[in-house]
Every structure is written in structure tokens, then in C-alpha cells.
């Protein structure tokens, strides 16, 4: 179970202004700006839930994911994941989670995928029998077969994403964070990835938290949607809650963004 209560997080960033005169002036005087990434964020996610976490860029999605995965310490508020405080017990915590950053690969570029998997086995100290069982299952469900023998650099984006997801599940995590898992994928791969995530959730009761801009992902996967904008949780409900009539999902969400005045 995941709970966040009244979590706040702010950053201080330096302003870099364009223009010749501005640049000269900033040589002597630097302005910084405080960005409040999260303002009093609270929610609870039960075991085995699939949640779509949506919002425009810069809304605080990745700060939330970072806090939940223990990479980032919140300024205030309490975070509990299965009884642990992620940033405090980070090492123990990350054993139980899997993270897929859609834009960044965790596989070694030049060696066969299976070599990266073997390394992950040592990183997570996965026992032989469990590794073998998981690998077999993932190979079958994600149809990895001959992909495992080819170097990552030779894979298509879709093939690579399937391998990335498998890599994040080798150690049987209880929670899976997916950051834009279908970005840039072709239609067939998208369907395959979604189908797999659904199966994984049903089969192993893995909690799935999904951030995405692709509303079809949400439609296909998320029974629950959390909308964040400008650091606030704006809505926490189901797809049915926001759908008013027969318009398609992109229009629905665009309308939602506009109504909360968070459209970029």
C-alpha cells in the first residue's frame, strides 16, 4: 500500500535570461526562483491497483515518482510504501519496486540483452530458481525469444521497450512504475505492451503506477486516474467520472486540462 500525506516539495533554480544585456547583468546579480513542484499532495493506492498518473509537463508527475521510488526526499509530509519510508530505507525499498523510464534505457547498448539481464540478476541478487522462472515467464509473455540474443542497439524501439519492461520485473517487484512506457512505439508494440501490463497486474497483483501523455494507455489500463496540475492533485477518480458523453479520450482530457486551467 502506498500513502502520501500532505507532501510538499520545492526547488530553487537559477534564472537564465535571454538577450545580451540580460546576460551581462546576470554576471553580477543572479536571480533564483523557487518552483513549488508539489503542494500538499495526498493520495492512497492499494495493493494491486493500476493507476494512471496524468498531468501536463512540469505538473509534478516526475517529482512524485521520484519521491515514491526513494530518489527524492520530500520537504514535508509523510510517505509510506508497504510500511517503509522510501527515501530513508531506500536500499530495502528499491528491492521491491521496478522502474521503467521510457526515455532512458537500462540495458547495455552493445551487448546481447540477456547479458544485461544476467547483470541485473547479480545487482538484485536474485536467486537462481526465481531468476529462471521469471525469465521464462517474461520471455514467453513478452515474446522475447530471439531478441535476448541480439545487442540492444539492434532492437527496434518496440522490441527494446519489451526488453526494458522485462528487465524491470526480473526481481519480481511488488510495485511497478512506468514512465511513458509507450512513447514512440508503433501500434502493434503499444498493444503488446498494454496487454502485458494488464496480464502482469492480474497474474501477480503487481501495483502499477503509470505516467503518460498517451490517453489510450490510460483508457486501456488505468481503472483509476489521478490528475496533477501545478503541484496540486486536481482530481482522483475513474475514467467514467470525467467522461461526459461520447467524445474521444484525448478531447476529454484536453477539456479537463482546460477546465482546471492547466493546459500549457
Amino acid at each position: 500500500m502506498i500513502t502520501m500525506e500532505h507532501v510538499c516539495k520545492s526547488y530553487r533554480i537559477a534564472k537564465r535570461n535571454a538577450g545580451f544585456r540580460e546576460a551581462c547583468r546576470s554576471l553580477f546579480h543572479r536571480e533564483t526562483e523557487e518552483i513549488q513542484a508539489l503542494k500538499d499532495v495526498s493520495f492512497t493506492i492499494r495493493d494491486g491497483e493500476m493507476v494512471g498518473y496524468i498531468g501536463p509537463n512540469g505538473a509534478g508527475k516526475s517529482s512524485t515518482i521520484k519521491i515514491l521510488s526513494g530518489i527524492l526526499t520530500p520537504d514535508s509530509g509523510t510517505v509510506l510504501v508497504d510500511g517503509r519510508v522510501p527515501h530513508r530505507d531506500r536500499i530495502a525499498h528499491v528491492k521491491e519496486i521496478g522502474v521503467v523510464f521510457g526515455q532512458r534505457s537500462q540495458l547495455w547498448w552493445d551487448v546481447p540483452v540477456i547479458d544485461s539481464f544476467e547483470l541485473l540478476k547479480d545487482i538484485y541478487t536474485i536467486p537462481d530458481n526465481i531468476y529462471k522462472k521469471n525469465l521464462e515467464e517474461l520471455t514467453e509473455l513478452l515474446n522475447l525469444g530471439e531478441l535476448l540474443r541480439s545487442p540492444t542497439r539492434q532492437l527496434s524501439l518496440g522490441q527494446r521497450m519489451r526488453c526494458e519492461i522485462a528487465a524491470s520485473l526480473l526481481h519480481s517487484p511488488r510495485i511497478l512504475f512506468l514512465d511513458e512506457p509507450t512513447i514512440g512505439l508503433d501500434a502493434v508494440s503499444k498493444l503488446a505492451v498494454r496487454e502485458f501490463i494488464r496480464r502482469q497486474n492480474q497474474l501477480h497483483k503487481t501495483t502499477v503506477i503509470l505516467t503518460t501523455h498517451d490517453m489510450q494507455d490510460i483508457e486501456a489500463l488505468a481503472s483509476r486516474i489521478i490528475l496533477i496540475g501545478k503541484g496540486h492533485i486536481l482530481m482522483d477518480g475513474t475514467l467514467e467520472d470525467i467522461r461526459r458523453g461520447g467524445e474521444n479520450i484525448d478531447e476529454t482530457v484536453a477539456e479537463l486540462y482546460r477546465s482546471y486551467d492547466i493546459a500549457n
Binding site: R16, A18, F20, S26
Partner: peptide
Amino acid sequence: FRLRFVLGLQYRV
């Protein structure tokens, strides 16, 4: 040149 110069100034550190 101006563009590069300004870029250089911005990264004053």
C-alpha cells in the same frame, strides 16, 4: 558570434 558570446556569459561559473 553574439549568440555564442551570450551563451558564454550565461555560464559564468
